[in-house]
Amino acid sequence: MESLPITIDSVSKSYGTYVALDDVSLDIQAGEFLTLLGPSGSGKTTLLMALAGFVRPDSGKLLLGDRDITRLAPNKRDIGIVFQNYALFPHMNVLANVAYPLALRKMPKAEARRRALDTLARVKLEGLSERNIAALSGGQRQRVALARAIVFEPRVMLMDEPLSALDKNLRETMQYEIRRLHDDLGITTIYVTHDQREALIMSDRIAVMNSGRIQQIDTPQRIYDRPSTRFVAEFMGEANIVAPGLVRRIDGADASRATLMIRAESFHLDEKLVGRDGIALEGTLRAKAFRGENWLLTLALDGGGQEVLVCIPAALASGCGELATGQRVTAYAPAAKVHPLPETIA
């Protein structure tokens, strides 16, 4: 199956005074798995629906390969879509749902049936082809929706929070299966989610959106470790944004003048675990919580009282249980994990 790159060129969309998409540009490579990540109202679903053809942009261009699809009708775009609520046809059984796009293309019945059954086997739904949609579990419906979106070999696949209605365990299984399916088919995929873990696990690249704009687009690891804005830093995980004056270098050299982003889990309580070029933060313990795999400590820093979250893996935190609130604590972080926020560098 030939997959195509997607180009989103300065696309804007407003509803009255509300700006849903604010001059968004984005290039997605052929065969890439790209996630649009953001809180609700950030514009990610609007962007997806614009690509599908259900939202008409006010301005800008959308290209599939080198074909301009900005004004193309949705049914001519050849894009497979998995909807948040699955959007399975309740008046058709599983097989008819999956064979539906083939029937629209006037494929002979026997061949359409064979193709639909093959695709159902691919998403591990053998033997359920004659079931009614109402008789399926949430996970099975999800698989039918997947099968229906890929059976007609579209060149692009769009997924709108497809796993948000599933419970946690099933969601994790499906994350790996969707990714595996993507790798098998090599189909260009744009995936929308508000779950940052899901985005990290599944994506080649993540585009973080907020208020109709793309804040940052990069690989999961770089988005997580090297966020370019405070919003991205905080949206991706437990981030501490620390003003320059509150930090000291362990070796006594001058500390950075930029505002720093340090993830809660980058800290250690043992100076020896951090190199000489690492940093130290001193404060008093405000609160502590045991979260199973780790301890979460809240420190109030000396000089201003800014609170910092420190996350210590339970396996390394033998002393955490004995710490009492009000006690003095010093947290250390290695230089590699201390990230100056670009937006704050003048």
């Binding site: 599908a52 053809g53 259900f54 009708a73 949705p74 049914n75 001519k76 775009r77 050849d78 894009i79 497979g80 879509i81 909807f83 948040q84 609520n85 959007a87 046809f89 539906y100 796009p101 629209l104 293309r105 229906r148 007609f152």
Partner: peptide, 21 residues
């Protein structure tokens, strides 16, 4: 559900086919 109509259309159904199917 509006998504059923969108789904149908995204899979290639013309307006007439959406109405009929």
């Amino acid at each position: 559900d509006a998504n059923l109509i969108r789904a149908s259309s995204s899979m290639g159904a013309s307006l007439g086919q959406v109405i009929r199917t």
